[in-house]
Design a binder for these strands. Structure first.
Lengths: 143, 143
DNA sequence: TGACTTTAGTTCGCCTACGAACTATATTTA
DNA sequence: TAAATATAGTTCGTAGGCGAACTAAAGTCA
C-alpha cells in the first residue's frame, strides 16, 4: 500500500525524483507553464504533421478526457498549442502546436537525454537491458 | 520528460498500476475514503503507540504540510483518525487512529502483501535483491 | 423524416499536491 | 519585560487527476 520501504515506494520515489529533475531543467531553460504531466501530450504532438482531435490525445496518453480537456486549455492559455473546431464534424476540436510549442521541442529531447543519462549513470549496458526486461515483467505482473 | 517509452515512463506506469491494485483491493474490502496516498500516513500511525503531532507526519511522509493538513482533515472527516490540541503547546495538534482507523490495519498489511507477491511473481529471489540494489542506485542517481 | 443512440468535449465536484501568505503561540534575545 | 524570531497549522489559489453528468452534433434505424 504505497509501502514507503518496499519496492512500490521505491518506484514512486524514483518517479518523483525524475519529475523534479524535469521541473528544474524546465525552469533553468525559462520554460514556463509546462510540467512533467504535459510530456506525453507534447511528445505526441511533436510526432504529428497537422492538427489532430483531442480524442486522439486521450487515446494516446493514459488520462481520462476531462483531465485532457483541462491540460489542453492550460497549454492553450500558455500559448503552446492552438485549438480549432473541425468543419466536417463540429463535435471535434483539432489541436496543434503553435510556433512557441514547436520551439520547446529541442529542450524537450535534451531533457529526456539528460534524464536517461542520469538514470543509467554507472550502470553497464547489459544490466540496463536486463533491468528493462524485469521492469516489463513487473508491469505485466501488475496489469 | 516523462518519456512514455523510456525507463522513466516505465516507472510511472508501474506506480500507477500498483495504485490501481490498491484501490481495487480497498473497494473489494468496502473500505471507503482511503486512497493509496494515505498509505504513508496510515503506516506511520500504525507504528505509534499514542497521539503524535502533525509535524511528525509531515517529516515522515514526503509531502508538504498544507497537503498533510488536507489529508488529515479528510481522514478525520471519514472517521479514521482524531485530532486534539496539545495542552503543553497549543500550536501543536495531536493526531491518532480511531477504532475505525485501527480496524483497517489488517487489510492494510494484507494489501501490501498482495502487492509484493504480484510484483515479484515468477522472479527468483536473488534477482529480486539485484533489482532492489539497482533501483537504489537509480534513485540516488536522480537525487 | 423522426426517434434513438453514439460520440466528442466540457463542466462540476472532489481529492492530492504545491507554494506562498497568514494566524497564533512559543521561544530567544536585547 | 518587550521586541524579534521561530514554529505549528491553516488558508488560499492553482493545477493534475478522476468520475459522473451534461451538451451538442453525428450517425443509425425504423
Amino acid at each position: 500500500m504505497n509501502n514507503t520501504n518496499g519496492i512500490i515506494g521505491q518506484f514512486s520515489r524514483i518517479t518523483e525524483a525524475a519529475n523534479l529533475i524535469i521541473k528544474n531543467e524546465l525552469s533553468a531553460r525559462k520554460i514556463e507553464g509546462i510540467v512533467p504531466a504535459h510530456g506525453p501530450i507534447l511528445v505526441f504532438l511533436f510526432e504529428q504533421s497537422g492538427p489532430i482531435p483531442i480524442k486522439t490525445i486521450v487515446q494516446k496518453i493514459r488520462r481520462v478526457k476531462s483531465t485532457v480537456t483541462a491540460m489542453i486549455n492550460n497549454l492553450e492559455r500558455n500559448g503552446y498549442i492552438s485549438k480549432q473546431p473541425c468543419q466536417r464534424d463540429t463535435r471535434i476540436i483539432n489541436v496543434e502546436l503553435t510556433a512557441k510549442g514547436n520551439n520547446i521541442r529541442k529542450d524537450f529531447f535534451e531533457i529526456s537525454e539528460i534524464l536517461i543519462n542520469k538514470t543509467y549513470n554507472n550502470i553497464p549496458e547489459n544490466q540496463q537491458q536486463d533491468l528493462m526486461k524485469q521492469l516489463s515483467v513487473i508491469e505485466s505482473n501488475l496489469t
